[in-house]
């Protein structure tokens, strides 16, 4: 997962963050970051129709959820299978806050992120002592618990019927409905930028390094003074905030909420985005979200065959490239770079 090849000899010993071998210099990454997101911001100029913007908005939402999952799953090595429940909590928190409690949509959006974070801290408590497969089971159980509570409290949450006519977001006096989804597109993009920036800064920080240390060698990390309780809570909480906000945005954009967000099919799709992209990269999950969302649209004509083709493709990529699309790109880049370097 982490590169262990050729340590880059950087001169500054005073650097506060530990320099991981093979790490991309932050200036280079910043340039790539700005270029990449500028390109995304310009996409509506190329794809003129409203439907294309809708697809991109969905891809942005999925990218936020998947990349945040990569933080806990990839970097943290915590098999958190309740990640989609955090998304669902965001959806329902926003819906209930705006619809029943009468909150301002933007306040509710932020509050949903906070509520998801609190839920993540709550779910961390039972998994502090657990490892591997048991974490999968408890977090999976947590997701089901949340869903069951929402179904059983149908008087408030609408149960299996879900909620409709949820207030959307607003921007001054701008008409959000009749602008061809331009406003929602840029809000979604802004959220993705904020989330990605947060994730990348986090994983490059000392806290991020300590989380990776815990994943790679738990005993050694603990003996060096890294607190597994604190860091695991931090990982889950950090991965929950933007996930909750993405859920709230999803509810605001779709104007309805249903328990489908807790279902296995959505979890499978998002998980395959994380794994297809390649874990512990953040960018991999984002790229895979675009690839899968656009691919799913592209195959819309296949109807019932679509989920089957997707399933076969996921299996195929996982068998051929266990480190995902980014691993694939890295492998081919490594081959090219190796060939270029050798004569020198």
């Amino acid at each position: 997962m982490t590169d262990t090849t050729s340590p880059t000899t950087l001169g500054h010993a005073e650097a506060a963050t530990p320099i991981a071998p093979g790490r991309t210099p932050w200036k280079l990454e910043a340039i790539g970051f700005v270029l990449g997101f500028t390109l995304l911001a310009l996409l509506p100029l190329i794809f003129g129709d409203t439907y294309a913007r809708h697809i991109l908005i969905m891809a942005f939402i999925y990218a936020i959820v998947a990349s945040n999952w990569d933080l806990s799953l990839g970097y943290g090595g915590v098999f958190n299978f309740g990640h989609l429940a955090l998304f669902g909590i965001g959806v329902y928190a926003y819906s209930l806050l705006t619809k029943l409690a009468g909150f301002d949509p933007w306040t509710a959006l932020f509050a949903s992120g906070v509520i998801a974070t609190l839920a993540a801290i709550l779910v961390t408590i039972p998994i502090l002592r657990l490892k591997g497969i048991y974490i999968i089971l408890v977090t999976f159980g947590f997701a089901q618990l949340v869903m069951q509570v929402i179904i059983s409290q149908s008087a408030i949450t609408g149960g299996t019927q879900g909620l409709v006519r949820i207030p959307g977001l607003y921007l001054f006096d701008h008409n959000m409905v009749r602008d061809g989804k331009f406003a929602y597109f840029y809000i979604a993009l802004a959220l993705l930028v904020a989330s990605t920036l947060f994730l990348r800064v986090f994983v490059r920080s000392r806290a991020g390094a300590s989380i990776v240390a815990l994943r790679d060698n738990e005993e050694y990390a603990i003996s060096r003074g890294v607190s597994i309780v604190r860091q695991r809570m931090l990982t889950l909480a950090a991965s929950a905030f933007f996930t909750g906000i993405a859920g709230a945005f999803y509810a605001a954009y779709q104007r309805n909420a249903s328990i489908d967000v807790f279902g296995m099919s959505l979890a499978t799709i998002i998980l395959s985005m994380v794994l297809l992209g390649g874990t512990s990269t953040i960018y991999g999950a984002i790229i895979a979200s675009f690839v899968l969302t656009i691919f799913a649209e592209w195959m819309a004509d296949f109807g019932a065959w679509r989920p089957m083709i997707t399933a076969v493709l996921i299996i195929g990529v996982m068998l051929a490239y266990p480190s995902g699309l980014v691993g694939m790109i890295k492998a081919s880049w490594g081959a090219v770079a190796g060939r270029l370097k050798r004569p020198a």
Binding site: L271, A304, I314
Partner: peptide, 23 residues
Amino acid sequence: NIVLVVVITTLAAGSLIENGALT
């Protein structure tokens, strides 16, 4: 990372069979 990868491959295989049965 076999535990994680098998989760996704068996989920995908399950989705394949489920949709196949539906068809």
